[in-house]
């Protein structure tokens, strides 16, 4: 791909990645959503987060890998326990990162 094509590609990707983020806020803000829609939207965040968690832990390389060789599953366990126990993002992250570093350097 030559340099001009790369720039066209970058600008094209920029437009299609920015529009879906901006348009709903820009166009829908003046409307009052009906209560059922608000309720439905309140489930979007937990659903999205859960999907992202499932993918990032059970398919870290882009392919589903549910096996004992997947170090992300092992690191998931202390992260979950610590975050439930402490309700702290800091300690949760710390638990996950340290576990992963230990697994990477000494086990996997």
């Amino acid at each position: 791909m030559n340099s001009t094509s790369i720039w066209i590609m970058i600008i094209g990707v920029s437009i299609v990645s920015i529009l879906p983020r901006i348009l709903p806020v820009a166009l829908l803000s003046r409307y009052e959503f009906p209560a059922p829609l608000k309720k439905w939207l309140s489930f979007v965040a937990p659903a999205v987060l859960s999907s992202l968690t499932a993918l990032s832990v059970l398919a870290p390389g882009g392919n589903i890998d549910i096996s004992i060789n997947n170090s992300y599953i092992w690191a998931f366990i202390p992260t979950l326990l610590i975050s439930v126990k402490t309700r702290s993002l800091f300690y949760g992250l710390l638990a996950g990162i340290i576990t992963m570093a230990v697994l990477y350097n000494f086990i996997f």
């Binding site: 937990p46 987060l49 968690t53 690191a75 979950l80 993002l89 638990a95 996950g96």
Partner: peptide
């Protein structure tokens, strides 16, 4: 991944 897990819990 750790951040997603924690935020999901919260």
């Amino acid at each position: 991944p750790a951040m997603f897990i924690c935020l999901l819990v919260f």
